[in-house]
Design a protein around this nucleic acid. Structure first.
Lengths: 259, 259
DNA sequence: AAGTGGTCTAGACCACCAT
DNA sequence: TGGTGGTCTAGACCACTTA
């Protein structure tokens, strides 16, 4: 009997998943687990598709469909002729997927990050809700100012649970050789895969006006971002205040799906 | 000779397309042309996949890959057991893909649209640039206030080229039975398929403060949206001013690709 | 030349919908 | 019961990278 003639192997592979789960969804889940479990490191290649097909005892086409979705979610990266790689955080990736500020003329600049403070603290109600932890749980608060073209444009407050980032110190943050998401990934094994953002307009208070070098009551764009890892588990809550006099936030939706 | 043994038929189908264009991209282009050309109307089913495969002389899998991308771009809608349909504009579609305002608690309300004015005019430099027309070209200006929970929250100014919407009148806009994008689609054959948005914070001037029932110099979120049809051709430029005291703009990126 | 992903084909069977 | 999309398989060949 050839394998596609055996109706039970599908259920065997699934082993506890919901009934009627497509095989490729199950393969996708196994791939995701293998990545988040650390068997394949960020930046390295995963096995060739035919090897994965053999390992999971499915057809190559089924593996391809699973990989297709993970590529669409920016978790894997395909390179024709080279292989398929686990996405690693670097400046280019951060700028492309997580930095949505452009100058009025549409050009995109890389910000210079200056840390203002690093502190131990506890989560307030809002922070706790966004991070899926209890109010009062220990967190780190990191405040940065982001400079574009030598002007302070963005005032960031980052909140992360101490439980996820044990023994993080200010010096580790300041002396990181790469982006902070790269630090999360390499030092704590936490990969940020997507984010959800909420935006509103507000007036600058005394502190943010001082930091951004503008007048009190100037208009500011406020972004609240929750950064998520696999299975939509929250990792970081970030509040950004942006002086949009010469910069804008852009949201190009769709365009993800096709070519 | 079986058809997959004939290496020339691929180039035959492409007929002038760039070299090495994948077949499914060509099929996608033909599907898009057939839709925008009006052979298949919004809301109606397109032929079954095996019929399309026969019509284009390709395998069903190739048709599926082309349709996959158009589904990802919200141009086609698949319904298992029923068929594949050309996406039609309606309230649900508008709310899901083009209305990104939620209440602070995350709930989404349907706005009540009240038209303030409808006028002939000419495009200024900014409007012309966004619409891909010449400054001074004739446009319609439509101003609306959008009410949520009986409060005026959004002040919209819509700019559309008269060349694309000949003989549009205020009464057609006011008496439309459905959304304005549905009107574009049914009365002018123009289907909005996606949009690109830029956001910033600004202070309310006298007019917007009056319309939104807030104080002058209150903070407002400004959205500039360009709505696009097939091949990214611009259709509408819209400037929205939003009172974000109790409402927010949300941007959930990714999540498009996978499930 | 060897290895990888990208495309294309062909056909089986399943799940769902309308009738 | 017939028709549709959804899944899965199997295998061919192409395009690209690396050595």
């Amino acid at each position: 009997m050839r394998k596609w003639e055996d109706p039970s192997r599908h259920q065997k592979l699934i082993a506890g998943a919901a009934l009627n789960t497509p095989l490729y969804k199950e393969v996708k889940r196994l791939l995701t687990e293998t990545i988040s479990g650390g068997e394949w490191k960020p930046g390295s290649a995963i096995p060739a598709e035919w090897k994965l097909a053999e390992r999971f005892d499915v057809a190559v086409g089924t593996v391809r469909k699973a990989v297709d979705e993970l590529v669409g979610e920016n978790i894997l990266i395909r390179q024709q002729g080279r292989g398929t790689f686990v996405a690693a955080h670097n400046r280019a990736r951060l700028m492309f997927h997580f930095f949505h500020i452009v100058r009025n003329d549409g050009s995109k600049l890389t910000p210079e990050v200056v840390m203002l403070s690093f502190g131990n603290g506890v989560a307030d109600a809002e922070e706790a809700a966004h991070l899926g932890i209890k109010a009062g749980a220990k967190v780190f608060h990191i405040r940065n100012v982001l400079r574009l073209a030598d002007e302070p444009i963005i005032f960031d407050t980052i909140v992360i649970p101490q439980a996820l980032f044990p023994k993080l110190t200010a010096s580790k943050v300041v002396n990181r050789p790469n982006t902070i998401y790269h630090l999360y990934q390499t030092a704590f094994g936490i990969t940020v895969v997507r984010s959800a953002e909420r935006l509103r307009a507000r007036l600058a208070d005394a502190e943010s006006a001082d930091i951004l070098g503008i007048k009190v009551k100037s208009p500011l764009l406020e972004i609240r971002r929750v950064a998520l890892t696999f299975n939509d588990a929250p990792v970081e809550f970030r509040r950004s205040l942006i002086n949009t006099e010469h910069y804008e936030y852009f949201s190009d939706l769709a365009k993800t799906g096709g070519g």
